[in-house]
Design a protein around this nucleic acid. Sequence first.
DNA 1: GTCATACTTCGACATATTACGAAGTATAGA
DNA 2: TCTATACTTCGTAATATGTCGAAGTATGAC
Lengths: 108, 108
Amino acid sequence: MSKYDSGKDEKYAEMFKALSNPHRLKIFLRLACCGPEGMACKKDNICECVGDLSGNLGIAQSTISHHLKELHRAGLISTRRNGQRIECWVDKGILGKLSDFFKTPAPD
Amino acid sequence: MSKYDSGKDEKYAEMFKALSNPHRLKIFLRLACCGPEGMACKKDNICECVGDLSGNLGIAQSTISHHLKELHRAGLISTRRNGQRIECWVDKGILGKLSDFFKTPAPD
DNA sequence: GTCATACTTCGACATATTACGAAGTATAGA
DNA sequence: TCTATACTTCGTAATATGTCGAAGTATGAC
């Protein structure tokens, strides 16, 4: 477990806030399960982009857009335009960082 | 990384919501750093209970009480009365569960 | 029993969040 | 250029959250 460190805690609190909304957590997990970490979201894969997520989760496109922005602001995902579509993927190393955050502490 | 599983996701979303508030995250980390996981919060240790947390974090006691309840509802901590004081500790196994949640996926 | 200490609950308020639809912007293709 | 598709931004409304102080409850000491 990470030692008490108020500097980094704020950043992690932001990440947890991003993941605290069930819809955003679903989006994040779908992207994370897309394939190897960091793999871009592709149409010909299982992965979805804004419109697909909207349809599959039953949420307005504008709301998906908003959630993606939140995930991005928290540093969890990246996005990039490819033609009309927006490709999105889970940032490299993030899963490891989050996993490590909860690792049992070395006794001090 | 946990597979897409809407059943459990809700529970994790609740935990992340509990940890999304900087004050609550601090409380959680302080309790987690208290000693071995699951170790009760003791006065004669570094650990704090409600009144101490209130003083150290500069937050009203009633607010601390509220935050502890949130952490408890999320299943992250347990509390028990010992005389006038409330002892609190991080639930056994929770750190491991949270850490595992973000483990890199086995390719599907 | 009375008083002090520790905590919880209540009521209130300011602020943040989630969500939608409508309107706007960007890109691709005819 | 015109149109269709994909996404974003804006405005707005409902609900949730974080916080405090005041009042309430529980425990321990005298």
